[in-house]
Computed example of a mutant assay.
Amino acid sequence: MNGIYKIIEKRKIWFTISLIIIAVGIFTMATKGLEYGLDFKGGTVVEINIGGTFNKNDVDSIIKKYSDNFQSTKTNEHSVTIKSTNLSNNNVSSIVKAIKSKYKKSSLTSQNNIGASIGKEARVNAIEAIIVAICAMFIYIGIRFELSFGIAAIIGLIHNVLVMLSVYAVLRVSIDSSFIAAALTVIGYSVHDTIVVFDRIRENQKYMRREDPELIADASVTQTLARSINTVLTVVITLTSVYILVPSVRNFSEPILVGIISGCYSSICIASPSWVLIKKHLAKSKKLKAVEDKTN
């Protein structure tokens, strides 16, 4: 068949690329660990109403005098949110006074202290949420399609989560509740993209029954490739615009951006080749069992 991209036969290249990224990420996590945000590590979240327009760099320079480890976000034109793991109540008071001396109308809007035990509980709950989501996806795909599709989809999902964690570990970006929400969003998007390819594979199996699974998968990926790329490009353009123009939601848009690109890649280059390998393994096992039955 002409015009079919040979994606599956190059699976060793795709698998190697993913393994290198994940291996570097795992090594970084093993040696340096992950950078956890306040939601998972504990700390202080302070919101200050400046009372008018302000220069964020000026506010950051004030905060640096009292904390060497903080994140500040311009919530809107008149407010700033400060997150830090080492801010005492006295430091918060000093920051508010210093900002108020520069911006007369400023005032403390809220102050929340997150304990380490609460952060640990949130971390455990986040991991459980991702595991439950992956298991639910496996059951759904296994029922709607067949076991081989379900296993391949789970491989793709785990791949996406590991790639996201690896990128965050290497770049030393903090992981918080926004990351978990983004990860669950990416899992849903990735499964949707994978199901589109798997649905085409299932359809093509009806008309290509005697063909090799590799050829069926290549034909299906080729037929859905333009749709997958166009879809991910529109999402990437939107997320990039949000990332640049809306700083307050960068903690959410950043992991989604990484995950969407990884999800498109995995549905084409990881999940589909994995389905072929599983399908061939099951067919081989079936033949061996048939031979053994005949021998006995």
Rank of each mutant, 00 (worst) to 15 (best):
V197W: 05
G51K: 02
G37E: 04
S117E: 11
V132H: 07
N2A: 05
Y5P: 04
L215E: 13
L34H: 01
T53P: 15
Q71G: 02
R144V: 08
D60A: 12
I229W: 08
G43R: 00
S285P: 05
A217W: 08
E121H: 01
I244Y: 14
D60G: 05
N55K: 14
I270E: 00
S61R: 12
K102H: 13
I244L: 15
L184R: 12
R209Q: 13
N296H: 11
I118A: 10
I48N: 03
L87G: 00
K104F: 11
K105V: 04
T295Q: 09
I95L: 05
A182G: 11
Y36G: 01
A217N: 06
K10Q: 14
A133V: 11
N113Q: 03
D58N: 10
N204D: 07
I229A: 02
I82N: 00
F252I: 01
F138L: 14
L157V: 08
A136D: 01
I187K: 07
V163G: 03
K97M: 10
I50T: 06
S93A: 12
M1N: 06
D58T: 12
I155G: 11
D176Q: 14
T185A: 11
S248E: 11
S93Y: 04
V24I: 15
F40Y: 15
A183R: 11
A181K: 06
S267G: 02
N230D: 12
Y66I: 00
K65V: 10
F27A: 13
T73V: 15
G263F: 01
P273Q: 07
I201D: 02
F54N: 11
M137Q: 05
N125L: 04
N296M: 09
Y66W: 00
T185L: 09
T185Y: 05
I62D: 04
N91G: 08
S228L: 08
R172L: 06
T238M: 13
V291Q: 12
I8C: 08
E214P: 09
N49V: 12
I63S: 00
V191M: 09
N296K: 13
S178R: 08
D39A: 10
N69Y: 06
S253Q: 03
M1S: 11
N57P: 06
T53Y: 10
P247Y: 04
L165Y: 05
S220L: 12
S285V: 10
S84H: 00
A133Y: 06
N204H: 10
S220I: 15
Y5R: 07
I143S: 03
V167F: 15
I216P: 13
G119R: 04
L225E: 07
V276L: 08
S61A: 14
N57K: 14
S93H: 13
C135G: 11
T295E: 09
D199G: 15
E77D: 13
L19W: 10
I130P: 05
R200I: 04
K65S: 06
E211H: 10
S241P: 07
A30Y: 15
S107D: 08
I95Q: 05
L162S: 12
V242G: 03
N251W: 04
G3R: 13
A290Y: 11
G150E: 01
V236G: 01
S148E: 08
N91C: 01
R250F: 00
L233R: 10
V92M: 02
V96Y: 09
I141G: 07
K206G: 04
V161E: 06
S94I: 00
V242E: 02
V46Y: 00
A122F: 14
